[in-house]
């Protein structure tokens, strides 16, 4: 009979990924590339908002986009066609989120040597992307009006970890039972440091403010 022995570990399942993510953040810091992890549910308007935002900043900074999806490359093509910036598609192969390893693979493929900012469009989902650190320097989430003002209560983690929350589709406020004030107070209760910017990617309302926010973040990132 073989001798059974016990190895005590007591470590977090996420420890591996967290370590990889920290290494990736340091690597990006050295190269002065600001990576933004963009999260939302499907249909909140990630790609449309990103397109509107990129059009405002692409003359000032060099932008790259990595689109993560379980399959297809419709988003990468859409971004490239509408903005002309470098855009690649990452397939997660059935996985519901990106992790630091996948992010690194994508960054190697897009070639960050002549980029200032890379937007990483995570898989459309409010649960799993929030749990895995991608190695990005900034976490952003987009909530849209039709989803309802109670989402910060239902999916607290993604709101807790986001530095910026964009509330999209405010042009549709009059058609929905969405209380903007209430929604902002729910977000603040979960994360008092979050910046919240209501926008309409369709009409362009609020996009200037988002553009200003990112340009400032890039300057801060490169300076410190």
């Amino acid at each position: 009979m073989e001798q059974v022995r016990t190895i005590l570990l007591h470590r977090s399942v996420y420890a591996d990924n967290d370590k990889e993510a920290d290494l990736l953040r340091a690597y990006l810091k050295d190269r002065g590339v600001f990576v933004v992890n963009l999260m939302s549910s499907p249909g909140a308007g990630k790609t449309t908002t990103l397109t509107a935002l990129i059009s405002k900043i692409k003359d000032k900074v060099r932008v790259g986009v990595m689109e993560a999806d379980i399959d297809s490359d419709v988003d990468a093509i859409r971004i490239a066609e509408r903005t002309g910036v470098k855009s690649i598609q990452l397939h997660t192969g059935g996985m519901c989120h990106l992790d630091a390893g996948m992010t690194k693979t994508g960054l190697d493929e897009i070639d960050i040597s002549n980029l200032d900012i890379v937007f990483l469009e995570n898989v459309g989902n409010l649960v799993c992307p929030a749990e895995f650190d991608t190695g990005a320097s900034l976490d952003v989430m987009i909530l849209s009006v039709p989803e309802g003002d109670d989402k910060p209560l239902k999916y607290p983690l993604v709101f807790e970890k986001s530095d910026l929350v964009i509330i999209n589709k405010i042009d549709a406020l009059k058609y929905f039972n969405f209380d903007l004030e209430k929604c902002i107070s729910y977000i603040k209760a979960r994360n008092k440091n979050a910046t919240i910017i209501p926008v309409s990617a369709k009409t362009g309302e609020g996009i200037d403010e988002v553009a200003k926010y990112f340009l400032k973040k890039i300057v801060d990132f490169k300076e410190c």
Partner: peptide, 11 residues
Amino acid sequence: RDFMIKDVKVV
């Protein structure tokens, strides 16, 4: 909210 690997038994 933690998800810990406590221990493993090996031979």
